[in-house]
């Protein structure tokens, strides 16, 4: 489904990603872990098409299409969803209104008729139950005055509504208490299927107790330096990242 080959990206001339290679197949959950500043969030942003990042080398294929040549909105319409680490506030625009605009543009791109108000609302009701979100929250201005937990829950709700092929969760666990973490993870797990894939970007192993990954990758200095099964995450939790840093730094020939 997703194939990243030798991806290099920089911001304002400073290289952040230095040759990422990653294959994600339908039905899989991949966790991207790593110390602060290793490039985890940059990878998520580059895949979603954030303009500040300049891709200097490499290519990314998503369902056979050259992802990097698509605009951010077309990537979304093709089925790439990014759950933001820091969801953005849009005053005066309710989640409902926002999602209706988004969903209908996605549908238009896919050659589908726009959903009428009745169908849209029944879809909302169905998805609201998934993430235990309150209707009241959805009629408030998007993310304005939301608590950290409400913002993240709202992201997962949007994900449920837009029904993406590839979901990228960028530090979705940050700022969540244990109950919110459970609700958000349950939502993500319910949305998983054989035809979709999930990339979970996280600093801590905690989230992976709930969203169990098939593969764990450690990102350090812009490269994936270690990959393994879910046990790798537990090992990292126990030993920290230092042993990997040392391993990498000692073998690095400059």
């Amino acid at each position: 489904m997703l194939s990243i080959k030798n991806l290099h990206a920089s911001i304002e001339g400073t290289p952040i990603l230095r040759g990422i290679n990653l294959e994600v197949k339908a039905g899989e959950v991949h966790a991207i872990m790593g110390p602060n500043g290793s490039g985890k969030s940059t990878l998520a942003s580059v895949l979603a098409g954030r303009e500040e990042y300049e891709v200097t080398e490499g290519e990314v294929f998503f369902q056979g299409k050259e992802l990097l040549s698509l605009s951010p909105e077309d990537r979304a319409r093709e089925g790439v969803f990014l759950a933001f680490q820091y969801p953005i506030e849009i005053p005066g625009v309710s989640t409902t209104n926002f999602l209706r605009t988004a969903l209908n543009q996605v549908r238009e791109y896919r050659g589908q008729e726009p959903l009428d108000a009745v169908k849209f609302l029944s879809l909302m009701k169905e998805k609201m139950a998934l993430v235990e979100i309150d209707q009241k929250l959805l009629s408030r201005s998007l993310n304005e005055g939301f608590s950290g937990g409400e913002k993240k829950r709202n992201e997962i709700f949007q994900m449920a509504m837009l029904n993406p092929v590839l979901s990228i969760l960028d530090e979705t666990d940050s700022g969540l208490d244990i109950d919110a973490l459970r609700i958000v993870s349950n939502g993500v797990n319910k949305l998983k299927s054989d035809t979709t894939a999930t990339i979970v970007v996280t600093h801590y192993q905690r989230l992976l107790d709930y969203i169990v990954p098939d593969f764990v990758h450690v990102l350090y200095k812009g490269r994936i330096v270690k990959s393994g099964k879910k046990e790798l995450a537990l090992e990292l939790e126990e030993k920290g990242y230092d042993w990997i840093k040392e391993e990498v730094d000692s073998t690095a020939t400059v």
Partner: peptide, 15 residues
Amino acid sequence: GEDQIFYCNQRGIAT
């Protein structure tokens, strides 16, 4: 903000 526009774009909304 470009952030706001990117957020909308990421949900499939044209600029």
